[in-house]
Amino acid sequence: MWNKDELEELLRRCSTGDADAFTKLYQLTSPRVYGLLLRITKDSTEAETQLQEVYEKIWRKACTFNFGSSNAAGWIVITARNHAIDNLRKKSIEPQMSFANDALLADPRPNPESALIKSDEASRLNDCIEELKPERAAAVRSVYLDGDTYATLARRAGVPLNTMRTWLRRSLISIRMCLER
């Protein structure tokens, strides 16, 4: 698990042009970010290119991070995820469903180690997702982890776009209510 205070301190140093801090930040966070990019792009070459672009962006934009009130880990993850999703949508193609190198891809299921260190928040979120019907839980996970859109999910499930939109919106509201309980 990432130490959010350490990441914030490293980001702060990056914002002043400290290349050593950037190297450390990269070493700490890139394996997870690369895993996320592999998951979204489903292409190791593309993920590698995007990894470099994401960290160049992090280097350039570190000074725009809201120090003291935002979550540094969240900022890095969101930066990477948005970058990958934007690229995916620019290309307007469905990600390849057969992978060139399956060994490189992240296992979508929680592994035993991660299950042990799972944070309370993730654990509660997972429990709430599990309360949904299986196909809707799968759709929610695809949205979170693969960056799928309503349209992609509707096509895959063979249902009209508005039906998928309604399902997912209800699912998201259910998750929010479940987390408040």
């Binding site: 990432w2 979550n71 296992d107 299950a115």
Partner: peptide, 26 residues
């Protein structure tokens, strides 16, 4: 955002990036 990060931290396995990425970044 926090939900998303929590899920990414627990469900996305870490993958060591190719070393040339860090060289190019440097």
């Amino acid at each position: 955002q926090n939900h998303l990060v929590a899920l990414v931290e627990t469900e996305i396995a870490e993958q060591t990036p190719p070393p040339n990425v860090q060289k190019r970044l440097s």
